[in-house]
Design a protein around this nucleic acid. Structure first.
Lengths: 203, 203
DNA sequence: CACTATAATTGAACATTGTTCATTGAACGC
DNA sequence: GCGTTCAATGAACAATGTTCAATTATAGTG
Protein backbone atom coordinates (compact mmCIF):
# COMPACT_ATOMS: atom_id res chain seq x y z
CA UNK A 1 0.00 0.00 0.00
CA UNK A 2 0.91 3.62 -0.30
CA UNK A 3 1.66 6.54 1.86
CA UNK A 4 -0.45 6.75 4.98
CA UNK A 5 -2.33 9.96 5.68
CA UNK A 6 -1.10 11.79 8.78
CA UNK A 7 -4.67 12.47 9.78
CA UNK A 8 -7.91 10.97 8.63
CA UNK A 9 -10.09 13.15 6.48
CA UNK A 10 -12.44 13.79 9.38
CA UNK A 11 -9.59 14.78 11.70
CA UNK A 12 -8.20 17.08 9.09
CA UNK A 13 -11.59 18.70 8.65
CA UNK A 14 -11.76 19.35 12.38
CA UNK A 15 -8.34 20.97 12.34
CA UNK A 16 -9.30 23.07 9.34
CA UNK A 17 -12.51 24.06 11.05
CA UNK A 18 -10.62 25.19 14.14
CA UNK A 19 -8.19 27.12 11.97
CA UNK A 20 -11.08 28.83 10.20
CA UNK A 21 -12.73 29.77 13.49
CA UNK A 22 -9.44 31.19 14.75
CA UNK A 23 -9.02 33.29 11.63
CA UNK A 24 -12.56 34.60 11.92
CA UNK A 25 -12.08 35.44 15.57
CA UNK A 26 -8.72 37.15 15.06
CA UNK A 27 -9.04 38.79 11.67
CA UNK A 28 -12.66 38.65 10.61
CA UNK A 29 -14.53 37.11 7.73
CA UNK A 30 -12.62 39.11 5.21
CA UNK A 31 -9.41 37.18 5.87
CA UNK A 32 -10.98 33.76 5.69
CA UNK A 33 -9.63 32.22 2.52
CA UNK A 34 -8.00 29.04 1.36
CA UNK A 35 -4.43 30.21 1.71
CA UNK A 36 -4.97 31.61 5.19
CA UNK A 37 -6.51 28.37 6.40
CA UNK A 38 -3.80 26.25 4.80
CA UNK A 39 -1.04 28.43 6.17
CA UNK A 40 -2.47 28.33 9.67
CA UNK A 41 -2.77 24.56 9.48
CA UNK A 42 0.78 24.30 8.28
CA UNK A 43 -0.21 22.59 5.06
CA UNK A 44 -0.35 23.65 1.44
CA UNK A 45 -3.36 24.90 -0.43
CA UNK A 46 -3.58 21.64 -2.31
CA UNK A 47 -4.22 19.75 0.90
CA UNK A 48 -7.33 21.82 1.52
CA UNK A 49 -8.69 20.51 -1.75
CA UNK A 50 -7.81 17.03 -0.63
CA UNK A 51 -10.04 17.50 2.39
CA UNK A 52 -12.77 19.62 0.90
CA UNK A 53 -14.25 19.97 -2.53
CA UNK A 54 -13.74 23.69 -2.17
CA UNK A 55 -13.92 26.62 0.20
CA UNK A 56 -17.72 26.45 0.20
CA UNK A 57 -17.60 23.18 2.03
CA UNK A 58 -15.42 24.60 4.78
CA UNK A 59 -17.71 27.60 5.07
CA UNK A 60 -20.67 25.26 5.33
CA UNK A 61 -18.97 23.46 8.21
CA UNK A 62 -18.33 26.71 10.05
CA UNK A 63 -21.93 27.69 9.52
CA UNK A 64 -22.98 24.29 10.76
CA UNK A 65 -21.16 24.91 14.02
CA UNK A 66 -22.81 28.28 14.30
CA UNK A 67 -26.26 26.77 13.81
CA UNK A 68 -25.45 24.10 16.39
CA UNK A 69 -24.31 26.70 18.88
CA UNK A 70 -27.45 28.73 18.26
CA UNK A 71 -29.63 25.72 18.76
CA UNK A 72 -27.80 24.86 21.97
CA UNK A 73 -28.20 28.42 23.24
CA UNK A 74 -31.90 28.54 22.45
CA UNK A 75 -32.46 25.10 23.92
CA UNK A 76 -31.28 26.39 27.26
CA UNK A 77 -34.12 28.91 27.41
CA UNK A 78 -36.70 27.62 29.89
CA UNK A 79 -40.17 27.52 28.36
CA UNK A 80 -43.37 28.30 30.22
CA UNK A 81 -45.93 27.31 27.63
CA UNK A 82 -47.05 30.89 27.12
CA UNK A 83 -46.08 31.64 23.52
CA UNK A 84 -45.59 35.39 23.88
CA UNK A 85 -43.37 35.14 26.91
CA UNK A 86 -41.46 32.21 25.51
CA UNK A 87 -40.91 33.75 22.13
CA UNK A 88 -39.62 36.90 23.76
CA UNK A 89 -37.28 34.88 25.93
CA UNK A 90 -36.01 32.97 22.91
CA UNK A 91 -35.57 36.19 20.99
CA UNK A 92 -33.50 37.71 23.79
CA UNK A 93 -31.18 34.73 23.78
CA UNK A 94 -31.12 34.87 20.01
CA UNK A 95 -30.13 38.53 20.02
CA UNK A 96 -27.43 37.94 22.60
CA UNK A 97 -26.07 35.15 20.44
CA UNK A 98 -26.06 37.23 17.29
CA UNK A 99 -24.27 40.10 18.99
CA UNK A 100 -21.81 37.93 20.85
CA UNK A 101 -20.77 35.90 17.83
CA UNK A 102 -21.27 38.61 15.27
CA UNK A 103 -18.55 37.54 12.89
CA UNK A 104 -19.27 33.88 12.49
CA UNK A 105 -22.98 34.67 12.55
CA UNK A 106 -22.59 36.98 9.60
CA UNK A 107 -20.78 34.27 7.69
CA UNK A 108 -24.19 32.63 7.36
CA UNK A 109 -25.26 35.50 5.16
CA UNK A 110 -22.20 35.76 2.97
CA UNK A 111 -22.19 34.41 -0.49
CA UNK A 112 -18.59 33.41 -1.07
CA UNK A 113 -18.75 32.25 -4.65
CA UNK A 114 -20.81 33.23 -7.67
CA UNK A 115 -21.83 29.66 -8.50
CA UNK A 116 -24.12 29.10 -5.56
CA UNK A 117 -24.44 25.40 -4.94
CA UNK A 118 -27.06 23.91 -2.71
CA UNK A 119 -25.84 23.34 0.87
CA UNK A 120 -25.35 19.73 2.01
CA UNK A 121 -28.27 17.77 3.42
CA UNK A 122 -27.16 17.95 7.06
CA UNK A 123 -27.35 21.70 6.76
CA UNK A 124 -31.08 21.52 6.20
CA UNK A 125 -31.34 19.26 9.21
CA UNK A 126 -29.80 21.86 11.47
CA UNK A 127 -32.20 24.48 10.21
CA UNK A 128 -35.11 22.11 10.61
CA UNK A 129 -34.09 21.60 14.22
CA UNK A 130 -34.33 25.34 14.81
CA UNK A 131 -37.73 25.38 13.18
CA UNK A 132 -38.81 22.55 15.45
CA UNK A 133 -37.71 24.53 18.47
CA UNK A 134 -39.73 27.53 17.37
CA UNK A 135 -42.70 25.32 16.60
CA UNK A 136 -42.60 24.08 20.17
CA UNK A 137 -42.77 27.67 21.36
CA UNK A 138 -45.64 28.68 19.13
CA UNK A 139 -47.61 25.46 19.22
CA UNK A 140 -50.08 26.66 21.88
CA UNK A 141 -51.28 29.33 19.47
CA UNK A 142 -52.40 26.64 17.08
CA UNK A 143 -54.92 24.01 17.87
CA UNK A 144 -54.43 20.37 16.99
CA UNK A 145 -54.82 19.61 13.31
CA UNK A 146 -53.28 22.94 12.40
CA UNK A 147 -49.71 21.73 12.16
CA UNK A 148 -49.40 23.03 8.62
CA UNK A 149 -50.38 26.52 9.72
CA UNK A 150 -47.96 26.30 12.60
CA UNK A 151 -45.13 25.24 10.32
CA UNK A 152 -45.90 28.04 7.91
CA UNK A 153 -46.08 30.58 10.69
CA UNK A 154 -42.68 29.58 12.02
CA UNK A 155 -41.16 29.86 8.59
CA UNK A 156 -42.66 33.29 8.12
CA UNK A 157 -41.11 34.37 11.37
CA UNK A 158 -37.79 32.96 10.29
CA UNK A 159 -37.92 34.76 6.97
CA UNK A 160 -38.78 38.06 8.64
CA UNK A 161 -35.90 37.71 11.03
CA UNK A 162 -33.68 36.80 8.12
CA UNK A 163 -34.50 40.21 6.71
CA UNK A 164 -33.27 41.81 9.90
CA UNK A 165 -30.09 39.76 10.13
CA UNK A 166 -29.12 40.06 6.54
CA UNK A 167 -29.56 43.81 6.46
CA UNK A 168 -27.63 44.06 9.69
CA UNK A 169 -24.85 41.83 8.41
CA UNK A 170 -24.23 44.21 5.54
CA UNK A 171 -24.42 47.29 7.68
CA UNK A 172 -27.54 48.30 5.77
CA UNK A 173 -29.98 48.19 8.64
CA UNK A 174 -29.07 51.77 9.47
CA UNK A 175 -30.03 52.76 5.94
CA UNK A 176 -33.58 51.64 6.60
CA UNK A 177 -34.13 52.64 10.17
CA UNK A 178 -32.55 54.56 12.99
CA UNK A 179 -33.59 51.95 15.52
CA UNK A 180 -30.89 49.60 16.81
CA UNK A 181 -30.85 45.93 15.93
CA UNK A 182 -32.51 44.69 19.10
CA UNK A 183 -35.32 47.23 18.92
CA UNK A 184 -36.10 46.26 15.34
CA UNK A 185 -36.01 42.56 16.17
CA UNK A 186 -38.29 42.97 19.15
CA UNK A 187 -40.66 45.18 17.23
CA UNK A 188 -40.81 42.63 14.47
CA UNK A 189 -41.56 39.79 16.84
CA UNK A 190 -44.27 41.81 18.54
CA UNK A 191 -45.97 42.69 15.29
CA UNK A 192 -45.67 39.12 14.18
CA UNK A 193 -47.19 37.78 17.37
CA UNK A 194 -50.04 40.24 17.12
CA UNK A 195 -50.55 39.08 13.57
CA UNK A 196 -50.69 35.44 14.58
CA UNK A 197 -53.21 36.20 17.31
CA UNK A 198 -55.26 38.23 14.88
CA UNK A 199 -55.25 35.63 12.14
CA UNK A 200 -55.83 32.81 14.59
CA UNK A 201 -58.87 34.67 15.91
CA UNK A 202 -60.09 35.29 12.38
CA UNK A 203 -59.89 31.58 11.50
CA UNK B 1 -5.98 73.43 -23.83
CA UNK B 2 -5.87 69.66 -23.93
CA UNK B 3 -7.71 66.84 -25.52
CA UNK B 4 -11.48 67.07 -25.52
CA UNK B 5 -13.48 64.14 -24.17
CA UNK B 6 -15.61 62.41 -26.77
CA UNK B 7 -18.51 62.26 -24.34
CA UNK B 8 -19.15 64.10 -21.14
CA UNK B 9 -18.85 62.09 -17.99
CA UNK B 10 -22.62 61.97 -17.61
CA UNK B 11 -23.09 60.78 -21.19
CA UNK B 12 -20.50 58.11 -20.69
CA UNK B 13 -22.22 56.96 -17.55
CA UNK B 14 -25.46 56.60 -19.45
CA UNK B 15 -23.76 54.53 -22.12
CA UNK B 16 -22.11 52.37 -19.48
CA UNK B 17 -25.42 51.94 -17.74
CA UNK B 18 -27.08 50.79 -20.94
CA UNK B 19 -24.21 48.39 -21.58
CA UNK B 20 -24.58 46.99 -18.08
CA UNK B 21 -28.32 46.51 -18.51
CA UNK B 22 -27.75 44.74 -21.81
CA UNK B 23 -25.23 42.39 -20.25
CA UNK B 24 -27.61 41.60 -17.41
CA UNK B 25 -30.46 40.97 -19.80
CA UNK B 26 -28.42 38.80 -22.15
CA UNK B 27 -26.02 36.97 -19.88
CA UNK B 28 -27.11 37.52 -16.30
CA UNK B 29 -25.58 39.10 -13.25
CA UNK B 30 -22.72 36.68 -13.28
CA UNK B 31 -21.22 38.21 -16.40
CA UNK B 32 -21.50 41.80 -15.28
CA UNK B 33 -17.93 42.91 -14.74
CA UNK B 34 -15.62 45.74 -15.65
CA UNK B 35 -14.11 44.10 -18.69
CA UNK B 36 -17.47 43.05 -20.10
CA UNK B 37 -18.87 46.56 -19.74
CA UNK B 38 -15.76 48.16 -21.24
CA UNK B 39 -15.67 45.73 -24.12
CA UNK B 40 -19.34 46.25 -24.90
CA UNK B 41 -18.83 50.00 -24.83
CA UNK B 42 -15.84 49.68 -27.11
CA UNK B 43 -13.48 51.29 -24.61
CA UNK B 44 -10.74 49.99 -22.39
CA UNK B 45 -11.05 49.05 -18.75
CA UNK B 46 -9.16 52.17 -17.75
CA UNK B 47 -11.90 54.34 -19.17
CA UNK B 48 -14.40 52.77 -16.81
CA UNK B 49 -12.28 54.03 -13.95
CA UNK B 50 -12.25 57.42 -15.55
CA UNK B 51 -16.03 57.49 -15.38
CA UNK B 52 -16.62 55.64 -12.14
CA UNK B 53 -14.64 55.26 -8.97
CA UNK B 54 -15.16 51.52 -9.33
CA UNK B 55 -17.60 48.84 -10.29
CA UNK B 56 -19.66 49.51 -7.18
CA UNK B 57 -20.68 52.87 -8.54
CA UNK B 58 -21.92 51.36 -11.77
CA UNK B 59 -23.84 48.72 -9.84
CA UNK B 60 -25.36 51.45 -7.71
CA UNK B 61 -26.56 53.20 -10.87
CA UNK B 62 -28.17 50.04 -12.18
CA UNK B 63 -29.83 49.51 -8.84
CA UNK B 64 -30.97 53.11 -8.91
CA UNK B 65 -32.74 52.48 -12.19
CA UNK B 66 -34.34 49.39 -10.75
CA UNK B 67 -35.63 51.31 -7.76
CA UNK B 68 -36.94 54.02 -10.03
CA UNK B 69 -38.74 51.49 -12.18
CA UNK B 70 -40.22 49.86 -9.11
CA UNK B 71 -41.43 53.16 -7.80
CA UNK B 72 -42.95 54.00 -11.16
CA UNK B 73 -44.71 50.63 -11.28
CA UNK B 74 -46.09 50.94 -7.77
CA UNK B 75 -47.15 54.52 -8.37
CA UNK B 76 -49.44 53.33 -11.12
CA UNK B 77 -51.46 51.23 -8.70
CA UNK B 78 -54.76 53.03 -8.04
CA UNK B 79 -55.38 53.48 -4.33
CA UNK B 80 -58.77 53.27 -2.68
CA UNK B 81 -57.89 54.39 0.83
CA UNK B 82 -58.56 50.97 2.28
CA UNK B 83 -55.16 49.85 3.56
CA UNK B 84 -55.69 46.11 3.23
CA UNK B 85 -56.95 46.27 -0.33
CA UNK B 86 -54.35 48.82 -1.33
CA UNK B 87 -51.47 46.96 0.22
CA UNK B 88 -52.54 43.80 -1.54
CA UNK B 89 -52.76 45.65 -4.82
CA UNK B 90 -49.33 47.15 -4.33
CA UNK B 91 -47.93 43.77 -3.39
CA UNK B 92 -49.32 42.21 -6.55
CA UNK B 93 -47.64 44.82 -8.67
CA UNK B 94 -44.52 44.41 -6.61
CA UNK B 95 -44.47 40.66 -7.19
CA UNK B 96 -45.04 41.08 -10.89
CA UNK B 97 -42.14 43.48 -11.02
CA UNK B 98 -39.80 41.19 -9.11
CA UNK B 99 -40.61 38.24 -11.32
CA UNK B 100 -40.50 40.20 -14.55
CA UNK B 101 -37.17 41.85 -13.86
CA UNK B 102 -35.70 39.07 -11.84
CA UNK B 103 -32.10 39.58 -12.81
CA UNK B 104 -31.66 43.26 -12.25
CA UNK B 105 -33.85 42.99 -9.18
CA UNK B 106 -31.53 40.43 -7.66
CA UNK B 107 -28.59 42.72 -8.26
CA UNK B 108 -29.97 44.78 -5.40
CA UNK B 109 -29.11 41.93 -3.07
CA UNK B 110 -25.66 41.12 -4.34
CA UNK B 111 -22.61 42.20 -2.51
CA UNK B 112 -20.05 42.66 -5.23
CA UNK B 113 -17.02 43.58 -3.16
CA UNK B 114 -15.80 42.68 0.29
CA UNK B 115 -15.15 46.29 1.30
CA UNK B 116 -18.77 47.35 1.51
CA UNK B 117 -18.96 51.10 1.15
CA UNK B 118 -22.06 53.08 1.94
CA UNK B 119 -24.26 53.75 -1.09
CA UNK B 120 -24.45 57.31 -2.40
CA UNK B 121 -26.95 59.75 -0.92
CA UNK B 122 -29.37 59.69 -3.86
CA UNK B 123 -29.73 55.98 -3.28
CA UNK B 124 -31.29 56.62 0.10
CA UNK B 125 -33.59 59.12 -1.52
CA UNK B 126 -34.97 56.49 -3.86
CA UNK B 127 -35.61 54.12 -0.99
CA UNK B 128 -37.21 56.89 1.01
CA UNK B 129 -39.56 57.51 -1.88
CA UNK B 130 -40.69 53.90 -1.73
CA UNK B 131 -41.21 54.20 1.98
CA UNK B 132 -43.29 57.29 1.40
CA UNK B 133 -45.45 55.40 -1.05
CA UNK B 134 -46.06 52.64 1.45
CA UNK B 135 -46.75 55.16 4.16
CA UNK B 136 -49.46 56.62 2.00
CA UNK B 137 -51.03 53.19 1.74
CA UNK B 138 -50.90 52.42 5.44
CA UNK B 139 -51.61 55.89 6.78
CA UNK B 140 -55.32 55.22 7.43
CA UNK B 141 -54.35 52.57 9.96
CA UNK B 142 -52.62 55.21 12.06
CA UNK B 143 -54.29 58.21 13.48
CA UNK B 144 -52.80 61.68 13.27
CA UNK B 145 -49.87 62.23 15.60
CA UNK B 146 -48.74 58.66 15.09
CA UNK B 147 -46.43 59.34 12.19
CA UNK B 148 -43.52 57.76 14.01
CA UNK B 149 -45.44 54.53 14.46
CA UNK B 150 -46.45 54.61 10.82
CA UNK B 151 -42.87 55.11 9.70
CA UNK B 152 -41.68 52.29 11.89
CA UNK B 153 -44.43 49.99 10.66
CA UNK B 154 -43.53 50.62 7.04
CA UNK B 155 -39.89 49.91 7.73
CA UNK B 156 -40.79 46.67 9.47
CA UNK B 157 -42.76 45.61 6.44
CA UNK B 158 -39.86 46.50 4.20
CA UNK B 159 -37.43 44.51 6.30
CA UNK B 160 -39.72 41.48 6.31
CA UNK B 161 -40.05 41.61 2.57
CA UNK B 162 -36.33 42.02 2.30
CA UNK B 163 -36.06 38.66 4.02
CA UNK B 164 -38.24 37.14 1.33
CA UNK B 165 -36.43 38.76 -1.59
CA UNK B 166 -32.95 38.08 -0.34
CA UNK B 167 -33.62 34.42 0.34
CA UNK B 168 -35.27 34.14 -3.05
CA UNK B 169 -32.40 35.90 -4.80
CA UNK B 170 -29.99 33.26 -3.53
CA UNK B 171 -32.29 30.39 -4.33
CA UNK B 172 -32.55 29.68 -0.62
CA UNK B 173 -36.24 30.30 -0.22
CA UNK B 174 -36.89 26.69 -1.16
CA UNK B 175 -34.64 25.61 1.70
CA UNK B 176 -36.99 27.23 4.15
CA UNK B 177 -40.38 26.57 2.66
CA UNK B 178 -42.09 24.66 -0.09
CA UNK B 179 -44.41 27.55 -0.83
CA UNK B 180 -43.69 29.60 -3.94
CA UNK B 181 -42.45 33.16 -3.75
CA UNK B 182 -45.81 34.83 -4.23
CA UNK B 183 -47.54 32.69 -1.63
CA UNK B 184 -44.88 33.50 0.94
CA UNK B 185 -45.02 37.19 0.14
CA UNK B 186 -48.80 37.31 0.38
CA UNK B 187 -48.80 35.31 3.57
CA UNK B 188 -46.28 37.65 5.06
CA UNK B 189 -48.26 40.73 4.15
CA UNK B 190 -51.42 39.21 5.59
CA UNK B 191 -49.77 38.33 8.87
CA UNK B 192 -48.23 41.73 8.98
CA UNK B 193 -51.51 43.50 8.36
CA UNK B 194 -53.20 41.44 11.04
CA UNK B 195 -50.39 42.40 13.36
CA UNK B 196 -50.81 46.08 12.64
CA UNK B 197 -54.53 45.88 13.26
CA UNK B 198 -53.90 43.97 16.47
CA UNK B 199 -51.30 46.36 17.78
CA UNK B 200 -53.24 49.39 16.68
CA UNK B 201 -56.25 48.08 18.59
CA UNK B 202 -54.07 47.43 21.63
CA UNK B 203 -52.73 51.00 21.64
C1' DC C 1 17.86 -3.75 4.07
C1' DA C 2 16.97 -2.07 -0.61
C1' DC C 3 13.51 -1.30 -3.74
C1' DT C 4 9.24 -0.33 -5.69
C1' DA C 5 4.47 0.77 -5.78
C1' DT C 6 1.20 3.78 -4.02
C1' DA C 7 -1.13 7.64 -2.65
C1' DA C 8 -0.89 11.87 0.15
C1' DT C 9 1.20 16.24 -0.27
C1' DT C 10 3.04 19.97 -2.52
C1' DG C 11 3.19 24.47 -4.76
C1' DA C 12 3.74 26.47 -9.16
C1' DA C 13 0.58 27.81 -12.47
C1' DC C 14 -3.98 29.08 -14.27
C1' DA C 15 -8.38 31.65 -14.34
C1' DT C 16 -11.01 35.39 -12.96
C1' DT C 17 -12.00 39.14 -10.78
C1' DG C 18 -11.09 44.57 -9.39
C1' DT C 19 -7.79 48.19 -9.69
C1' DT C 20 -3.66 51.18 -10.86
C1' DC C 21 -0.68 54.05 -13.56
C1' DA C 22 3.11 55.00 -16.93
C1' DT C 23 2.57 55.65 -21.65
C1' DT C 24 0.27 57.19 -25.77
C1' DG C 25 -1.71 60.20 -28.89
C1' DA C 26 -5.56 63.27 -30.30
C1' DA C 27 -7.22 67.91 -30.10
C1' DC C 28 -6.67 72.62 -28.84
C1' DG C 29 -4.37 77.31 -28.44
C1' DC C 30 -0.64 79.64 -30.15
C1' DG D 1 3.45 73.51 -37.51
C1' DC D 2 4.16 72.70 -32.65
C1' DG D 3 4.03 72.09 -28.04
C1' DT D 4 0.80 71.21 -24.28
C1' DT D 5 -2.63 68.87 -22.03
C1' DC D 6 -5.28 65.34 -20.53
C1' DA D 7 -8.59 61.48 -21.98
C1' DA D 8 -7.71 56.97 -23.23
C1' DT D 9 -5.15 52.89 -23.17
C1' DG D 10 -3.88 48.26 -21.70
C1' DA D 11 -0.13 45.96 -19.52
C1' DA D 12 0.65 44.81 -14.97
C1' DC D 13 -0.55 44.01 -10.09
C1' DA D 14 -3.14 41.99 -6.27
C1' DA D 15 -6.22 38.80 -4.42
C1' DT D 16 -9.00 35.31 -4.76
C1' DG D 17 -10.47 30.01 -5.95
C1' DT D 18 -8.86 25.99 -8.25
C1' DT D 19 -6.04 22.38 -10.79
C1' DC D 20 -2.59 18.96 -11.51
C1' DA D 21 2.16 17.26 -12.69
C1' DA D 22 5.83 16.47 -9.73
C1' DT D 23 7.48 15.15 -5.32
C1' DT D 24 7.90 12.53 -1.28
C1' DA D 25 6.93 9.58 2.52
C1' DT D 26 5.38 5.23 3.70
C1' DA D 27 3.91 0.31 3.31
C1' DG D 28 4.68 -3.77 1.39
C1' DT D 29 7.96 -7.08 -1.11
C1' DG D 30 12.10 -9.74 -2.25
Amino acid sequence: MGRRPKHSKAEFQKIALAAAQDIIAEHGLHDLNVRAVASRMGVSVGTIYNIFTGIEELVALVNGETLDALHAALSRVPLTGRPEADLHAVLDRYLAFVIERERSWNLLFEERLPGAKEPPAWYFGKIARLFALLERVLAPLFGPGREADLARAVRLLWISMHGVWSLNARGQLAIVTDDPLDAVARDMVDTYLAGLRGRAAAV
